Computed example of a mutant assay.
Amino acid sequence: MTRPVPGSAGPPTAVPTAPPTPGRSPWSRIRPATVGLPLLGLVVTVAVWWAVTSGLHLVHPASLPPPQAVGTSLTSSADVLLPALGTTTLMTLLGFLLSAVAGVLIGMALAASRRIERMFAPLLVAINAVPKIALGPLLVVSVGWGTKPILTMVFLLCFFPIVLSTATGLTTTPADLAELARSLNASWWQSFRKVRFPAALPQIFVGLKVAMPLAAIGAVIGEFYSDKPGLGYQILQYNGVGDTATAWAAIVLIAAMSILLYSALSLVERLALPWVRATTSAR
């Protein structure tokens, strides 16, 4: 495409112009290293695992089975482990969503009033400091069997980092943005909705990403004290009969589930907050 140059004598001179650049999809930014390096790390980890268990015989197979034994058990017990994986994934997601909603609301309350923060912040720290594994038997007595102890355990493990990140994000609004809202005579709600909450979203997502693996841990611990046949329940069952290879297969599935859920949350953050990478240093 060409365009005439104004102010020149004689006939217009044709100057080339760049064609319009189509919008780039977020998927176009995915580089081969994004997938290749994690796969390489997985290969190295499995190789070290094999060397420790089968190559050098540094660990007894009863304590840590070799990767080939775990893979065989994963295949032979797939009819049991895959439904258990679905149960654990569902409990993890439900507990995480409950923790996210409650954690953001509690963090907003702490950020809105310094008096409320001084009243309840020490209590929240104390609750977070209690060893959650010690609460397992008590939860069965308090809330009964089924999904309640599992969701309660997930909530207890997840809510604190979400509360802390939300309160921190809402109380550290950039000064120039806060001054801009005041100069425009924005109401408290307008300032919160247009300035403070969007500015706090990167911090909130930090808390959510910290809480996601904790949700998987809480679901497994809760299943230790529940009748739900999730992966935690299967670990106890197989370990009780001495089938450590299948128990480790369940642990591998828990790790894979956690990686996928964390990656999905990171993708949601990338799509929901496109301005963060544009305003921070890239790596």
Rank of each mutant, 00 (worst) to 15 (best):
Q237N: 14
L253Y: 02
G242V: 11
F197G: 01
Q203H: 15
P213N: 02
A245P: 08
V163F: 10
I254E: 03
P149W: 11
A211Q: 06
S183V: 05
G240N: 13
F205K: 01
I259S: 06
G230C: 00
Y225F: 15
F197K: 01
I204D: 00
D176G: 07
L151F: 12
G232F: 00
A249I: 01
S142Y: 13
G218P: 05
T173R: 03
V195P: 05
T171H: 07
Y238K: 10
F160P: 02
L164G: 05
T166D: 08
F224I: 10
A247M: 15
C158N: 08
P229I: 04
G232A: 06
T147F: 12
A249F: 03
L208G: 02
G240F: 05
S226G: 05
S191T: 15
K228T: 09
D243W: 04
T166C: 10
G146V: 06
T173N: 03
P202H: 02
T166W: 02
S142G: 09
G230I: 00
P161H: 08
R193G: 07
V206A: 13
L231E: 08
I217C: 02
Q237C: 01
L260R: 02
S165N: 15
R193A: 12
M212V: 07
A219K: 04
T173D: 04
V143K: 04
S142Q: 12
P202I: 00
R193M: 03
T171Q: 13
Y238F: 15
L177I: 10
V252N: 04
A249K: 02
S187D: 11
T246R: 09
T168Q: 13
K148M: 12
G144Q: 06
T168K: 11
I217V: 15
L214D: 06
L184D: 05
G146I: 09
S187A: 06
A215L: 05
S165L: 08
G207C: 09
G207S: 12
T171I: 03
P229H: 06
Y225S: 12
L170A: 07
S187H: 03
V252I: 11
T173V: 15
A250R: 09
R182A: 15
L180C: 06
T147L: 11
C158M: 07
F155L: 14
